[in-house]
Simulated scan of single mutants.
Amino acid sequence: MTEGTSELTAPELTRDSILVLDDKRFIADNVALVTGAASGIGRATAVALAVNGLTVIGADIDGDGLIETADIIDDLTASGLFYDVETDLTNAGDIRAVVEAATKEGTLRYVANIAGLQHIDPIAEFPVDRYDHLQDVLIRAPFLTARAAIPHIEATDDGVGAIANMSSVHGQYATQRKPAYIIAKHALNGLTRSIAAEGDGLLRSFSVSAGYVLTPLMMNQIEQTANQRNISTEAVVEDVMLGQARTKEMMTPAEVANLFVFGFSGHGRHLNGGDLLWDGGFTTTYE
């Protein structure tokens, strides 16, 4: 970490980095919808679910990034299928359309709401338009996606499925200069529990809360924080981000994607309304 941020790049997605489970519902007839599938955790999750045999619908506003995700899935000779659907998650019509597209490719059972973005400013200086945009993508879109998907999951032959939401350590506590993101992640935890409360144990919901993950979003955040605090990027990583953690390295997108694979599988059948907190001890241990 101390030699510079040039080392802070996510390793290439490989089959060895992906958790592969033998699960009776991980078949091409069953569909998983993944938002944010053009990069980072969303891309890794789309790849991991396709490698596990599911048909995956990747939704993102970045069409070129979705094509790159499709290429990775092809390179890994995944047993599942992948279809990309360019989607503006701030548009309710687009959200309804991508859910309908998912139902046309098989039995929709799984949704992974992963799309994310960030803006760093103190509350008194936070641009209202950026606040609204973050809430649209991080809260409103997952709610509308769940709203559109739930009737389809409940209408399957056994009603079994799961909706997973990408939360964060910032859904557990607050730090400075990220108010919109922190508010959204706390709200997303509430959405997760609300879905679980209405799911009767068959339609489950869970969230994933990672610490700091090597994604393009995170790399931009490192640079922005360094500029705002007038410190080096190395200091941002070592002191600001990982200073409180016991595990002194960032997670990879594949490691987070594997949590979605496990949660969707039959091994996660008692994970309902709960949170997979994988943060290296960041929120639970103190010096």
Rank of each mutant, 00 (worst) to 15 (best):
116 G>T: 04
97 A>L: 11
55 T>K: 01
115 A>I: 13
130 R>A: 15
104 K>C: 06
115 A>K: 03
97 A>C: 09
123 I>K: 00
79 S>L: 06
150 I>N: 00
104 K>Q: 10
94 D>S: 12
89 L>M: 12
104 K>T: 11
56 V>A: 13
137 V>R: 02
76 L>E: 07
73 I>P: 04
139 I>P: 00
83 Y>W: 01
147 R>L: 12
83 Y>L: 07
139 I>M: 01
90 T>F: 06
64 D>L: 12
59 A>N: 05
129 D>F: 07
100 E>G: 05
62 D>M: 10
113 N>Q: 11
66 L>H: 01
127 P>N: 11
69 T>F: 10
90 T>C: 13
112 A>D: 03
106 G>F: 06
52 N>A: 11
126 F>D: 05
72 I>V: 15
59 A>W: 00
52 N>Q: 10
77 T>W: 09
56 V>L: 14
97 A>E: 14
112 A>M: 10
134 L>G: 06
51 V>G: 12
127 P>E: 13
84 D>I: 07
127 P>D: 14
59 A>E: 05
73 I>M: 03
105 E>N: 04
130 R>K: 15
105 E>K: 03
119 H>Q: 05
91 N>Y: 06
111 V>Y: 03
121 D>W: 04
88 D>A: 08
105 E>T: 01
54 L>S: 08
109 R>S: 10
149 A>E: 09
51 V>T: 11
143 F>P: 02
131 Y>K: 13
92 A>D: 14
51 V>D: 10
124 A>I: 06
81 L>T: 13
62 D>Q: 08
92 A>H: 10
83 Y>R: 06
131 Y>A: 12
121 D>A: 15
116 G>L: 01
108 L>R: 04
127 P>Y: 11
111 V>H: 04
78 A>D: 11
59 A>Y: 05
92 A>I: 12
116 G>H: 00
107 T>P: 00
107 T>W: 00
78 A>L: 10
74 D>R: 13
126 F>W: 03
151 P>I: 06
105 E>F: 03
82 F>P: 08
120 I>T: 15
60 D>Q: 02
109 R>A: 07
77 T>C: 13
146 A>M: 14
149 A>V: 08
